[in-house]
Amino acid sequence: MTTSSNQRPKRTQRDYTLAFKLGVVERVEKGELSYKQAQAHFGIQGRSTVLVWLRKHGRLDWSKPFQHPLMPSSKETPAEKIKRLERELADEKLRNKILNGMVDIMDNEYG
């Protein structure tokens, strides 16, 4: 069985040294490659192999799915979203009022 010169030979699990795994993890965490790009670039066969390495050897917390702090959960109904936004608006109005009061006090005391 022959392979063409531009194809990499299939690798087995035994071929991956710790240094190799750490190198792949580092490149993915730096953002040089996505985990799928790393898989293709290094000829890694398993679909989730790089993800397993990221969870095991990476510096990031992969134990729970990422939820952006500014993006509410998708389970929020429109009514809940309106209530949440109204609360946030009221909080910001209060914060603005407090800060404006502090500015007024500073103007009166220090000119």
Rank of each mutant, 00 (worst) to 15 (best):
T2G: 10
T2H: 10
T3I: 14
S4Q: 06
S4Y: 08
S4M: 06
S5I: 08
N6K: 14
N6D: 03
P9S: 15
P9N: 14
R11Q: 12
Q13D: 01
R14F: 02
R14N: 05
R14T: 04
Y16V: 01
Y16S: 00
T17N: 01
T17I: 05
L18E: 08
L18D: 08
L18P: 00
F20Y: 10
F20T: 11
L22M: 13
L22S: 11
L22T: 12
V24I: 11
V24P: 01
V25F: 07
V25R: 13
E26W: 05
E26C: 02
R27N: 08
V28Y: 11
K30D: 04
G31I: 04
G31P: 01
E32W: 02
L33R: 07
L33F: 09
S34D: 00
S34L: 00
Y35R: 02
Y35N: 02
Q37S: 02
Q37Y: 00
Q39M: 02
Q39F: 00
Q39K: 12
A40M: 06
F42I: 03
F42C: 02
F42G: 06
G43N: 08
I44Q: 10
Q45F: 03
G46N: 10
G46K: 15
S48P: 00
T49G: 04
T49H: 09
V50N: 12
L51N: 14
V52R: 15
V52C: 05
W53V: 07
L54E: 09
R55L: 01
R55T: 11
R55W: 04
K56C: 03
H57T: 01
H57C: 03
G58T: 10
G58P: 03
L60P: 00
D61V: 06
W62P: 01
S63G: 07
K64I: 07
K64V: 09
K64W: 04
H68F: 01
H68M: 00
P69T: 13
P69K: 14
P69M: 09
M71Q: 14
M71S: 07
M71L: 10
P72K: 13
S73I: 06
S73R: 15
S74A: 13
T77A: 02
T77N: 06
T77L: 01
T77W: 03
T77R: 07
T77Q: 03
P78R: 13
P78T: 14
A79K: 14
A79Y: 08
A79T: 15
A79Q: 14
E80Y: 04
K81F: 06
I82E: 13
I82A: 14
K83P: 00
K83R: 15
L85R: 15
L85C: 07
L85V: 10
R87K: 14
R87L: 03
E88H: 10
E88N: 11
E88A: 12
L89T: 15
L89M: 08
L89Y: 13
A90P: 00
D91Y: 10
D91V: 06
D91A: 13
K93L: 03
L94F: 07
N96K: 15
N96G: 07
N96Q: 13
K97V: 12
K97A: 14
I98V: 13
I98N: 06
N100C: 07
N100W: 11
G101H: 10
M102W: 03
M102D: 05
M102T: 04
V103S: 05
V103H: 06
V103I: 12
D104K: 15
I105N: 04
I105V: 11
M106P: 00
N108Y: 08
N108V: 09
Y110S: 05
G111L: 10
